[in-house]
Design a protein around this nucleic acid. Structure first.
Lengths: 350, 350
DNA sequence: TTTTTAATTGTTAGCGCTATCATCTGTTAG
DNA sequence: CTAACAGATGATAGCGCTAACAATTAAAAA
């Protein structure tokens, strides 16, 4: 430890290691970053010096000098929801294998907050962004394009991604589930989820509407919920649904969390699922298959989406992948007991 | 944009902004960091120049020059589990209000991985660490102590924290739940969760054992599960429990996820909960109160623990809090239908 | 032997900021 | 009228690393 610049304590630097090992700082740097370029004896000497001094490589200085931060930023609507945790893990796992660190920030489903958050993260000079969603403010888009940082958008689809895309058609997926419910014989299918929040929610609602329209089932019935990510919210909606006349014979939910909340609430108020009312969700979350009755859902490859997005991003950063790359992820309609399907049967789609 | 150093493109720098505004770079820096020191006219001019040039502050350079990264690191066992998401949010929310960024890494419940992860993060020179758990390798402890970075440990208790602690007594909490079950009249209480994973799991198992021993209920019965964070694992354990002779009259689980998996599995195999077997969990997760029957649990202030830990850490970083600070968080025994308690009644403890 | 080439290592000059001190203005007090 | 001082701005010298190039040595080719 030395004293420098007005008395602030500084840690061990590469220079210190170099002195101990009897080489130049550059050689130490090479041992750490391109060990094959260094003679084996010297390498051993340097490694010993590193151990002896307790040197900890300084990535801040490295980032500044090399213009590479080794950080990828992950922007998502919320960190506190089970909906995205698997995608986070997918990104995080890939990041780790490439010796890159992931930094996360949440937007609370607000494009304005997203703009702020991205601007804040840009100050860290991340090597790339994975962003959940394709709907951004004009300024956000301009900011990202000007910065020249690779971006992979995901969890939604668009023909005009900022850079690259790991897509998911929320519209198609929810429409397919609606059709599956129709095929199961349900005729008064209601939908929970607002059309006024984020684009993913909107597209799912539109998919439901399209499914209803094509089946010629009359006017769609869309119910809103204030909070779209809590079981409590599902419970509250279930009470409203139970009071409707005529009561819907199926309730399709924006996601599995709402669906589970509704399903359990129906049961508690004495309604049989699916006898009195069927319930279906979206997302394929883990707990869905464990509920009694097990919950029908649209299974989407959450972990794989995160993985794929991170891999694509790392390709873009390395320059091996071209801009404009797109990869559409599929979905699976999983009909279980909550819609009258049998437990083990899992229909396949897309 | 200028070309520098062999042709790499560089973005707009503070120097560029300064030139446009007709001031020195130092003044631009002051406008951004200590605006009160700068004359209002100049400030306006600089702000205009920033907008005009599209300048984005470079925190990498700032971190290097100021020896402050503005990053706090959060180390937790896993990012993919609902158990910690609320704590993550607590840390993240506090970090945001202090204009600090949070960087997260997971250890997979392994002290060896924790050591690697902490060493990797130390390279980014974070201003502080929040670490879930108090059990670390000797090397980890030495590393953190030598680095001099403030550390707040949480989600467990110890008289000898590395630096500061936001504590939770897993032993006391699980013992209290065991006693509550005994008070409810259960006599053959089994426990699920391994005593061989992390210290938090161990302490909970020990709390259960102590509760059983003090009640004079004979030998404790501890069942292991391979995976301690999935409902599927709870289901598998439930099958083993159902086959026991005599069958336990209550199953106490390491956490709510296991408990929910077990509860739903018991129901599916035709066992009444709590009639044939009671179930209780730990963690106070959101979904517990929604299950039918609602799940008894030990509610712990997950979000607040994250908040408190982050606040304490920021105090340590600012130098306003002393080393060795400790703050013990409480817990609440919540008895619900799954142990024969009535739904609204929520007993209070600690 | 001399020249060419490849393989190692070192030197230099930043990366884009900020801590520190110096300078310069305009006040206020003596 | 000068000294003392506070307030605002600028100049300088790094922070700890790496890109680019230079220098050195040893091996291969001529």
């Amino acid at each position: 430890m030395r004293q420098k610049r007005g008395g602030r304590a500084a840690g061990v630097t590469m220079e210190d290691v170099a002195r101990v090992a009897g080489v130049s700082a550059m050689t130490v740097s090479r041992v750490l970053r391109q060990p094959t370029l260094v003679n084996a004896d010297l390498k051993a000497k340097v490694e010993a010096a590193i151990r002896e001094t307790g040197y900890i490589y300084n990535l801040v200085a490295s980032s500044l000098a090399s213009q590479r931060s080794g950080i990828i930023a992950l922007i998502l609507p919320t960190v506190a929801s089970s909906i995205f945790t698997d995608s986070v893990k997918g990104v995080s796992d890939v990041a780790r294998t490439h010796a890159v660190q992931m930094i996360m920030a949440e937007t609370n489903y607000s494009p304005a907050e997203e703009e702020k958050v991205i601007e804040a993260l840009l100050r860290r000079r991340p090597d790339g962004f994975v962003i959940v969603g394709v709907s951004h403010t004009r300024a956000t888009r301009a900011l990202l394009e000007k910065s020249g940082v690779p971006v992979v958008e995901t969890w939604d689809s668009t023909p005009t991604p900022i850079d690259s895309l790991v897509g998911l058609s929320n519209f198609d997926a929810m429409k397919a589930m609606t059709e599956a419910l129709v095929a199961q014989g349900f005729r008064r299918i209601a939908f929970v989820g607002t059309a006024t929040r984020d684009r993913r929610a909107q597209m799912r609602a539109k998919g439901y509407e399209a499914g209803i329209a094509e089946a010629g089932l009359g006017a769609p019935l869309i119910l809103n919920a204030d909070d779209l990510t809590s079981m409590e919210s599902g419970r509250i909606v279930a009470e409203r649904v139970a009071a409707l006349h005529p009561r819907p014979d199926a309730l399709l939910c924006l996601n599995d969390v709402l669906a589970a909340g509704a399903l359990l609430a129906f049961q508690r108020m004495g309604l049989a699922v699916p006898g009195d009312i069927a319930v279906a969700g979206f997302g394929g979350l883990d707990f869905s298959s464990h509920l009694n009755p097990s919950l029908s859902t649209v299974d989407i490859p959450r972990y794989e989406m995160g993985q794929r997005a991170a891999e694509m991003l790392i390709g873009r950063i390395a320059g091996t992948a071209a801009q404009g790359g797109t990869c559409e992820m599929g979905y699976r309609i999983v009909l279980r007991e909550s819609t009258g399907g049998s437990r083990p049967a899992e229909a396949q789609a897309s």
